[in-house]
Design a protein around this nucleic acid. Structure first.
Lengths: 154, 154
DNA sequence: ATAGAGCATGCCCTATACGTAATGATTATT
DNA sequence: AATAATCATTACGTATAGGGCATGCTCTAT
């Protein structure tokens, strides 16, 4: 029941490219990657990338059933990973990317991004405050523990 | 099959105390509490307290099947909540409390605590660094977004 | 032709800290 | 006695971000 088109050639190309993965990669922006290639390059597992797809964050083309990623897909994934590093949830990242897809004129989503970023900044500032407080408390506990040990040892 | 002892009196005492929960509470350290009383006082749900028991963090006495908490139990719970605020996992908190229970001479566990605290401090310092970096990046994104919006609006 | 890569799908598993019923027993109140 | 309020136990659900395994297909190399 699967619409199976010309699977062979693309897979072949993919495999061949795989052989010289570390070469200059054809000087064009038309580079293609398999999941695991991309995974290696981005420092995540293939499972992760497929997971993102499942969550609607990426949508690679297929050669038959095999996922084929373009450099655009790659860039998108890097965006996703950056978002993650910055502490956004996959859901938030998806929402932003969706907006970006719908409206490439870059207006609505810039505002959206700005809003999200500011929200995130506020959250982080709160977190930082809490963290500082924890650190202070812990320093206190540390000092007290040290004192208690000193006294009982003497 | 449950060893059911004199359930009545204790429950009665508990409930009666419930009526004047906000009173001076009998000036002794012998105050007793029910789960939900304690929950209210500590700002958590009864479910939470029972969950902690399930995880072996507290072990209240029982009046029949009903949990009865002493002020010692209460203090222990406050310790637990403090640990949580400081970012320790329930598991870590349990390990520490267990140590404290076994060896109340306060030596091994003091060292243990000190070690755990220092570890936690190190972790928090790392987190803080990461957080600062995220904030810097976000500030950058914010600036860029603002600029882009300004330019396209003008 | 047959093994070995690499890929795909599907499904269950993990950790953390509880929330949310469902169901039953006991106690207090009316 | 009936009803409301608490309490208990059991057990499934939630959110997040994947990990890991089984099974099966395709393509390449020997």
């Amino acid at each position: 029941m699967t619409t199976r088109t010309t699977t062979g050639p693309a897979m072949a190309a993919l495999h061949e490219r795989h052989q010289r993965e570390d070469e200059a990669a054809g000087q064009q922006g038309d580079a293609l990657y398999s999941v695991s290639q991309l995974a290696r390059q981005l420092g995540v597992t293939a499972r992760t990338i497929r997971f993102y797809e499942d969550k609607g964050l990426v949508n690679p083309s297929r050669a038959g059933t095999t996922r084929v990623y373009t450099s655009r897909d790659r860039a998108r994934l890097m965006l996703i990973l950056r978002g993650k590093r910055l502490g956004f949830s996959l859901r938030e990242i998806k929402d932003y990317l969706d907006l970006y897809d719908v409206d490439p004129t870059q207006h609505a989503q810039l505002r959206q991004l700005l809003a999200a970023v500011r929200k995130r900044i506020a959250k982080l500032q709160e977190q930082r405050a809490a963290l500082e407080q924890s650190l202070a408390e812990l320093a206190d506990i540390e000092r007290q523990s040290e004192n208690a040990l000193k006294l009982s040892t003497k």
